[in-house]
Amino acid sequence: MSSPFSINGGACVAMVGKDCVAIACDLRLGLQALTVSNNFPKIFNYGDVYLGLTGLATDVSTVAETMRYKVNMYRLREERQISPQTMANLVSSSLYERRFGPWFVSPVIAGINHTTGKPFICGFDSIGCIDFAKDFIVSGTASDQLFGTCEGLWEPDLGPEDLFETVSQALLNAVDRDALSGWGAHVYIIEKDKVTKRLLKGRQD
């Protein structure tokens, strides 16, 4: 309970589909059992790349802003957008820099590589070890539940609409079994030249 990872609560999930990827998060911000806010999104956009952050809320905000600074500097220096793969390595090296005093976050990345057109997702532990998954990545206080729902609902080569339904059901049903997550959700469906953001109401308890 006193783990920094489970003080504020929250959940995030990313999934691969056919020529598309999805990333979704809940909206709860809490202090242990007390819910403080029901509008605390955990997904941040960096051009072609989407970064989901769960864990200690203050670290979520700080890491999101640090990455904003780093990606902006990258764009100015290199006169190009950062690719999901490069972003993954940037996040990894940034987290490992704090090896002995880590940010208490569990990041998730989703995006489509502009050059290859291929979907990309990955997840990290709090010190930057990358998990390159071909199917889905989960993080947050509802990660156990998300593993169960994703493993049960996900299948290969889902189209954008089916992927939206799958990721939404996986998230909604997982957070309903986690007291620290829920209170609505954001879902991004990322296609090659289109991104659809949907807001899910979900259970408000």
Partner: peptide
């Protein structure tokens, strides 16, 4: 914890 939310849904 893995199975229960799946059962809720299905």
């Amino acid at each position: 914890s893995l199975i229960m939310p799946f059962l809720d849904n299905q």
